[in-house]
Structures are given as structure tokens and as C-alpha cells.
Design a protein around this nucleic acid. Structure first.
Lengths: 138, 138
DNA sequence: GTGTTACATGCAAGTCACTTGCAATTGTAA
DNA sequence: TTACAATTGCAAGTGACTTGCATGTAACAC
């Protein structure tokens, strides 16, 4: 696990419990954003089961500390991905099979100043997700 | 109500019931996307109450016919806005008070071809929402 | 090591947005 | 006016996520 993550946990007064370490490991092993239920299932598969509530609480905590990003794809559940060492990016999801692919691009940075000028808001984040049909499903 | 909406309903074999007309009117009167609960409340305020289930079913139907857009802002509920006569656009929401403002811009069209080339997906839609702090809340 | 304590966990129950089953109602077109 | 399919309202169900609370356990001091 990246030591920066351990440092951030320590700085937040968080303990390194067994379930917590297992949850972090699952997140780090996943190249794509996954749901709380996914994390729960993988913990069970690895014979390190933790309560789904514990998963939810840890994901919320990691998000507050800025260690994970959330990805909402409008299918009624949040997905989570570790932030550490990864560039800001977006995703595309297939409407057929649900497959998610990373898109290592973001055209929004240049736009933020324009949005701020138009709205007088202080913009602090944005979401951008694409939907369509993957090669297998179209 | 825009006659195109009536035409589309008719073409879809839909009846023009009283609750349905009232729901459409509420949507058309709202300049910003609103939730099913919002629609339900406004119907009650207008003395044209309809069951929340009826609201949900009509919103789903209108979305299928392409007469309304859905807007997901990651607060656990969908919002709906009529499509008729409005350009494709996005939104910004205040993290403090929840206020939503229309952003009449979209930088994504030009990007779609690039995304399709990179992923081999057939892109058919995208979501883009901004979050920040409005002038009153920051 | 032992003790202390604040943070964490697991279970049960609760919440909230949304959906489904079904009997009763109502547009619509013949 | 009749007939039938679409629609509605109510009740109950679903699924993601949250909260309350008693028990468990890192982490730090001794």
C-alpha cells in the first residue's frame, strides 16, 4: 500500500485494523471503480470477510480523507477508486454489458474559469461520464 | 403544452389523463430540473394531487419517449427537465444550499469522436455536472 | 506485558428513493 | 354507448445505504 495512504490515515487519527487493511487492498487491486457490494464480495472471496456496514463506513471515511474518488453512473450505486498515483480522469460505461473503461482525458480544466465567470460560483469539482455501446455489444 | 409533446404521446399510444397532463404542466413550469418528490408536492399545492407512484411512472415513460432528460447530481435522487425547445446543456450545483443553475454550454461534442476512437465504443450520451459554492454560500 | 481508551466492528433495525402487483378507474376509438 | 387497453392508487416490496448500540481491538503509556 502506498505509504502516503498510511500517513493520511494516521494523520486523521485512524487505526489500521484488519478489515480496513483488507478493504484498502481490494481497492488498490482494482483497476476500475467498484461498488461497496463488490468490495464486500471480494473480501469474502479472499477469506477476509468484513461486514458490509464496515465497508460503507470505510469508503465514506476514505472519501473524506480524499484517498478515494467516487464515480456515479446513474445505476443506483456509487463506485469507488483509489486516487493515489492516478491522474484525474473520467469513464465510459457500456449500456449493454455495463463494462466500464477508463478515459485518461479531461477537457474540463480549461472550462472552469469560464463557468466561474458565468455563474460566480467557486467551482471545486465536476463529474463527466460517457455512455454508449462497447465493441462486443453494439 | 408544446404540441410536439402531445404528438409524441399519441404516437406512443399514450392517453392524456388528468394526472398526466398535470405532471407535464408542472415540468413545463419548472425552469430547472426537479425531483419526483418535487413534482408530487407541486401537484398537491395546485390541488391536482396524484400518487407519487403515478409521478414516477410518468417520468419514466416521458424519459423513454425522449420528452424529458434526467439529471443525476449524486445526492441520491434523480431530477427531470423537459427537453422540448431547450438546447443540450449542463448544470452546476452549490454544495452549500443545493441551488442548481443551468450552464448553457457543452464542450463535449467535439470530444466524442476522440473518445470513440480511443475506446471503440459507440458513444450515445454523456453526463457533465459541476459542483462548487454559489456567491451566497462561499 | 498490562492497562486504558478512543476508534472500529458487527449485528439489527431504520431510512429513503424507487418499483411491482393488482384491483378499480378512465380515456379512446369503434 | 360500449368495450377494452392504458392508467391510476394503494399496499407491499426492493435495494442501496445509514444509524444505534453493545462488543472488540489498535495504539500508546506505563
Amino acid at each position: 500500500m502506498a505509504s502516503s495512504m498510511l500517513d493520511r490515515l494516521k494523520a486523521g487519527g485512524k487505526k489500521l485494523t484488519k478489515p480496513r487493511k483488507a478493504i484498502l487492498a481490494v481497492l488498490e487491486q482494482s483497476p476500475l471503480p467498484i461498488t461497496a457490494a463488490d468490495v464486500h464480495d471480494r473480501l469474502k472471496a479472499q477469506r477476509k470477510p468484513a461486514d458490509l456496514v464496515t465497508v460503507y463506513r470505510n469508503l465514506a471515511m476514505l472519501q473524506e480523507l480524499g484517498l478515494v474518488n467516487t464515480v456515479g453512473l446513474h445505476d443506483g450505486q456509487m463506485r469507488y477508486e483509489v486516487r493515489h498515483g492516478r491522474e484525474h480522469h473520467h469513464h465510459i460505461q457500456c449500456r449493454g454489458c455495463g463494462k466500464i473503461v477508463d478515459l485518461m482525458l479531461c477537457p474540463i480544466k480549461k472550462l472552469t474559469a469560464l463557468v466561474e465567470a458565468k455563474t460566480k460560483f467557486a467551482v471545486d469539482s465536476h463529474t463527466l461520464e460517457f455512455f454508449g455501446w462497447c465493441p462486443q455489444c453494439r
